[in-house]
Simulated scan of single mutants.
Amino acid sequence: MSNGLIVNSFYELESRYTDYWNKNLGPKAWNIGPLCLAAEPPENNISKNSSYLRWLDEKFDKGEPVLYVSFGTQAEISPEQFLEIAEGLEKSEVSFLWALRSKGLDFLPEFESRVKKGRGLIEKEWVDQSKILQHDGVKGFLSHSGWNSVMESISAGVPILAMPFMAEQHLNARFVAEEIGVGPRILSRGGSVRGYVAAEEVEMKARELMGGRKVAEEVSKRVAEWGRAAHGAIKEGGSSWLTLDLLIDDVMGKFTK
């Protein structure tokens, strides 16, 4: 009974899927994103003066690229899996900012004490993810591959290290790594899509993204191209701009009949 779907994406990114959907399936999909670029958010004094942004500034001044780490707020991740991720990040020797809102993780105090001497920062309060991804010092995003995070990362031109946990995140991760090529994907033990991720896999992929010249250069080039396309889509005359006009015309036409 639906007249259509409003989608937080842009036509160039998923053109063949959008065309197939609209031709063979439906209801009509209207790609009007990325919504994170639709308007500048109001200045937030909390985020503006946050210690994690000052820490990123310091890292940038020293020429040390940072891997941003966040897995959203919905996925249930076991303490054992958190421990493997932490061990992998520590062994990778890359600088990282980990937005982590979890309680009861016994490894945290000891882990923090080992990495806080300049290389790692764990932020347990709310963070402004958009500002973090837009920071010049952030060169990678270890993400659960939630679609909003994917859109924000592409729009900011930041490569994604995809580590899905639930729901459509696995499909998004495959799209990120295999379809549009904006970053590698972390795999579970034995190469399976779902399951337990070992510290060695996190360490290897983090090194590849942040320090491996071939991988880093390739995905950085690809995400920069998609980032330019995303910004072009929402500009006047861009694909999302024109699609929104068509959506308004379609809705108004139904009301005036």
Results as ranks from 00 to 15, higher is better:
1 M>I: 13
248 I>D: 01
93 E>M: 09
6 I>W: 07
183 G>K: 00
43 E>K: 14
23 K>C: 13
72 G>L: 08
111 F>S: 04
163 M>K: 06
247 L>Y: 04
106 D>M: 09
128 D>E: 05
97 L>V: 04
43 E>R: 15
139 K>W: 12
231 H>P: 05
138 V>E: 03
22 N>A: 10
157 G>I: 10
52 Y>I: 12
136 D>L: 14
154 I>C: 06
35 L>Q: 03
157 G>R: 07
20 Y>V: 09
106 D>Y: 11
63 G>Q: 08
254 K>F: 10
195 G>S: 08
40 E>V: 14
183 G>Y: 00
171 L>F: 12
9 S>K: 09
185 R>H: 00
90 E>M: 04
256 T>Y: 09
60 F>T: 15
93 E>Y: 07
92 S>M: 01
132 I>K: 01
46 I>M: 06
219 V>M: 02
178 E>Y: 11
64 E>A: 11
153 S>P: 09
209 L>E: 00
202 V>R: 03
124 K>Y: 00
140 G>F: 02
206 A>R: 03
144 H>K: 02
248 I>Q: 02
162 A>S: 13
137 G>A: 10
122 I>E: 02
206 A>E: 01
125 E>T: 15
74 Q>P: 01
63 G>C: 10
150 V>I: 15
212 G>A: 04
234 I>D: 00
20 Y>P: 07
23 K>W: 05
174 R>L: 09
43 E>M: 11
64 E>M: 13
100 L>W: 04
117 K>Q: 09
126 W>C: 05
83 L>D: 15
79 P>W: 03
82 F>Q: 05
15 S>G: 04
34 P>H: 06
60 F>H: 15
147 W>N: 02
195 G>V: 10
49 N>Q: 10
145 S>W: 00
136 D>V: 14
49 N>K: 13
35 L>G: 02
176 V>T: 05
17 Y>V: 15
150 V>W: 07
39 A>H: 05
257 K>R: 10
46 I>R: 07
162 A>C: 05
227 G>N: 09
120 G>R: 03
30 W>G: 00
231 H>N: 13
107 F>Y: 12
78 S>T: 15
203 E>R: 12
110 E>A: 15
236 E>A: 10
251 V>C: 06
193 V>E: 10
155 S>T: 08
128 D>C: 12
226 W>S: 07
117 K>P: 01
99 A>I: 12
85 I>A: 03
89 L>G: 01
248 I>L: 08
65 P>C: 08
194 R>S: 03
103 K>G: 09
62 K>M: 13
127 V>E: 02
203 E>G: 04
25 L>D: 06
97 L>E: 02
114 R>H: 03
242 L>H: 06
89 L>N: 02
83 L>N: 14
78 S>Y: 01
161 L>M: 12
153 S>L: 08
197 V>C: 00
229 A>S: 15
68 Y>Q: 02
231 H>K: 15
120 G>E: 01
143 S>P: 11
238 G>L: 07
194 R>A: 03
125 E>H: 09
3 N>G: 11
102 S>E: 15
130 S>R: 15
